[in-house]
Design a protein around this nucleic acid. Structure first.
Lengths: 139, 139
DNA sequence: AAATTATTTCGCTAAATAACGAAATAAACA
DNA sequence: TGTTTATTTCGTTATTTAGCGAAATAATTT
């Protein structure tokens, strides 16, 4: 009934994307397949005047659907998976003419990769289970 | 009605853990907190005679609970989160006397990190959407 | 062996979510 | 302008899952 704001089609991408959301986005098999397809595919990246990163060319939503589902039709399921990956900050989806073109946000991906690698076997932060004095967190 | 096998308490850890499961395990805020706590905490690792990796010392399940929930009691929730992290292959949980001691599976974590870093900005695999023959739309 | 301590599994419920088709929206084209 | 093409949003349903308390299991202590 009530129309929703036509001004902003897309929900804002998390500027400080929380890692749980990124991991969660990758934690669903279909989304991971989409992500891997995008990585194998839409590699060239151009940097905008304003410094924004955008894919120079990448698959359209329709092409992603075709690859993932094997069918010809665009499905809302894939669209919604792309949305979750985009909101998490892992991919970009932007209009180019009639189509929406997908790309990988390489910065976000490599930052997530570094997070996993960085303090692997790093004992510096070893404030282990002894000091449980003040645990109250105010989030 | 049928009791389940008392012999093997634990479900087998995926030997070739699928990445979606690993990402999914990290994709829940509480589990990510647990994971980060374990990484900040139980760092020393020893390698077994048989080549198995095991934490030399790490927090017990009770200590993890204490840190994460702030309370004294061990909760089934944390236990189940630990189980999911363990099944995914990201952590180890093994009995030491009366306690279960947790550790990080550094190999799995760094392998996952490398997966994210490796073909970032790698255009070698560029079998892009062109070989689709029948995709109607090109710019 | 019974009691204690530490932890996991079970059963439940409520909330999240994946899949789907239909309707809405957006750009391009006739 | 209305129509077509491309995609997103909406509404629904079925499945999954996080959280919780109670019961079960396991090692230890008495």
């Amino acid at each position: 009934m009530t129309k929703q704001s036509p001004l902003e089609l897309k929900e804002p991408v998390k500027l400080r994307p929380d890692r749980a959301a990124m991991f969660k986005a990758l934690g669903e098999p279909t989304r991971l397949r989409i992500f891997e397809f995008l990585r194998s595919c839409c590699c060239p990246v151009s940097v905008d005047d304003s410094g924004d990163i955008r894919p120079a060319s990448g698959p359209t939503v329709g092409e992603v659907c075709c690859r993932i589902t094997g069918g010809e039709r665009i499905t809302s399921t894939i669209s919604e998976h792309l949305k979750e990956l985009r909101i998490a900050g892992l991919i970009t989806v932007e209009r180019r003419g009639k189509n929406m073109v997908c790309g990988v946000n390489e910065d976000a991906v490599s930052s997530l990769g570094k997070y996993l690698l960085d303090n692997s076997s790093d004992s510096s932060n070893n404030n282990c289970c002894g000091d449980k004095d003040q645990l109250n967190e105010t989030e």
